[in-house]
Each structure stands twice: as C-alpha cells, then as structure tokens.
Simulated assay, not measured.
Amino acid sequence: MRQERAERTRQLLVEAAAASFDTAGYTMTGLGDVTKLSGMSKGALYFHFGSKEQLAEAVLAASREGLREIVGEARRSGDSTVQYLIDLCHALARRVDEDVVFRAGLRLTGDPGLDRAICPSPQGSWVKMVRLLLNRAAGRHQVRVDVPVEVTATLLAAAMTGVEVLARQDRQWLGREVVTRLWQAVLPTLVPPEELRRLHPAGPKTEPEAIPTDAPDAPGAEPESLFPGLPAKGRRYEPTALFLEPDGAGPSF
C-alpha cells in the first residue's frame, strides 16, 4: 500500500512538471510551481527527485514510453505499409493533443535550457522511420515507381514535425482533419491507383476509445490523474534511449 502511494505521488509530480514545462518551458519552471500544481510538499518532491533536471528526465522517459505505445498500436494497419504510416501520423497527432506528458516531452527535446545529451531530439529517428517505411512500401510495389523516396520521406517527416510545432500556438493543427487533408494531398502522387483505392487517409476506420476522465473513483481512492488523457495508473518511468526501428512484429528499442 505504501509503495502504491509512493508511485502515485511520483506520477502526480511527473504530471505536474509536464504541465508546467508544456506551458512555461524548462527554464521558467520552478520546483515551487510543481509542488503547487501537484498539491505535494517539497519534502515529497525531494523524496522522489533531487532536482528539476531529474524531473525533466522522468517526463522525457514517460514521453518515450508513450511513443512506444503509439508505434505498437499503429502496427494493426494490416499489410499496407503506407496505411501504417498514415495511422502512425494520426496517432502521434492525437497523443500530442491529449497527453500533456507526451507533449511536454517533445517540447523539452528542443528546450535550450536542457543538455542535448539528456534530451536528444527525436526528429532524426522520426525521419529515419519514415524513410524506412517508404522504402519498404516501395519494395512491396505500394509506392509509384517514379517517386523519389528519400526526398518524399524527408518532406513527410518535416510536415508532421511542422504540425506539432504550429500546434504549440493553435491546437487545431492537431485535429484529425488536418492530418487527413495532408494525406489526401500526398497519396495521389505517392501510390499507384490500385493502392490508392484501399487506403484510408483519415486513419483507422475505428478510433480508439477515449480515456474517461470523469469516471467515479473507488471509495477512498485518490484521483486517478491531475490531467485528462493520462494513464490511469502511475508507473515508474526509467530514462531509456529512443530508437525507432520498424522491423519485425513490434518496435525495437
């Protein structure tokens, strides 16, 4: 019971730190902001984290875990590699919109106040993954023979990165319609006509169930989360290196 409460306290601190990093950035966030937002004491914070940098590392680790989940879930796209890439883009946009910890992790990777060795940018891995997927699709004749795969992969990766950056000022950029229109514009020049007919630029036919944010708690239970869209149960996140490798049955890290 005591361990569960400690894990829950740690998760609440990570969520509060993420919310502050997301709105104010790393440099302008103080530990007092985290304790105030989480409702925890400074003693509780220092029991779990010795510094603001350690808090940032925990947020980054949680964000990477979310990325692993997205990569795994998007693999249910059947035998079309292009559809997998479409679904992955939709899942990324949706997760950025709904999950403050995931969103804050992405913001931290570009924050000048943090050492790049602690929070390397995921953009290189994202470009690599798009390139690998398009090359695989080309090998399966799912891409037009006249398409320059390397250039197209770079442009697609840049487009989705741009959507995330623009959404920091206007969250409507993360809407399903934006990503759908992007793919509606790209697909006719990317895939053969017979492939085009079986693709869904709007992403999965059935959207995943939204995580309920107003479900009543069990008697005597603590609130499940400070923020909507976050995992219901606290978990201990350990920093790990991010490496996206779309080979085999699941992602490799």
Rank of each mutant, 00 (worst) to 15 (best):
D111N: 04
D115N: 13
L106Q: 07
G139A: 12
Q123R: 04
S121P: 05
L114A: 03
R103K: 13
R103E: 13
R103F: 10
L133N: 04
M129A: 13
F102V: 07
L133K: 02
I118E: 01
S125D: 09
R107G: 01
F102Q: 08
R94M: 09
A138Q: 08
L88Q: 10
A117F: 02
R131T: 14
H90C: 06
D111E: 06
G105S: 14
L92C: 12
D99C: 07
H90R: 14
R136L: 14
D97S: 14
D97E: 15
E98A: 15
A93K: 12
A93C: 14
V96P: 00
T109P: 07
A104E: 05
G113Y: 02
L106W: 15
E98V: 14
L134W: 05
A137C: 07
S121N: 06
L108D: 00
A93N: 09
V101T: 11
R116G: 07
Q123A: 13
L114E: 00
C119A: 15
V127L: 07
H90L: 07
R116E: 11
H90G: 03
P112Q: 06
R116K: 11
F102G: 01
K128N: 13
V127H: 10
R95V: 06
G124N: 05
E98R: 15
R103N: 11
K128P: 00
Q123P: 00
C119R: 08
R107W: 02
P112V: 08
L133V: 12
L92S: 11
S121G: 07
K128D: 12
L92A: 13
V130N: 05
L92Q: 14
W126C: 14
L133F: 05
T109S: 14
H90T: 01
I118G: 00
V130M: 07
L88V: 08
P120G: 02
M129P: 00
L92N: 10
L108N: 02
A137E: 02
G113M: 06
L92R: 15
W126K: 09
V100G: 02
D111K: 10
R136K: 14
L92V: 15
A137T: 04
P112S: 13
D111P: 03
C89R: 12
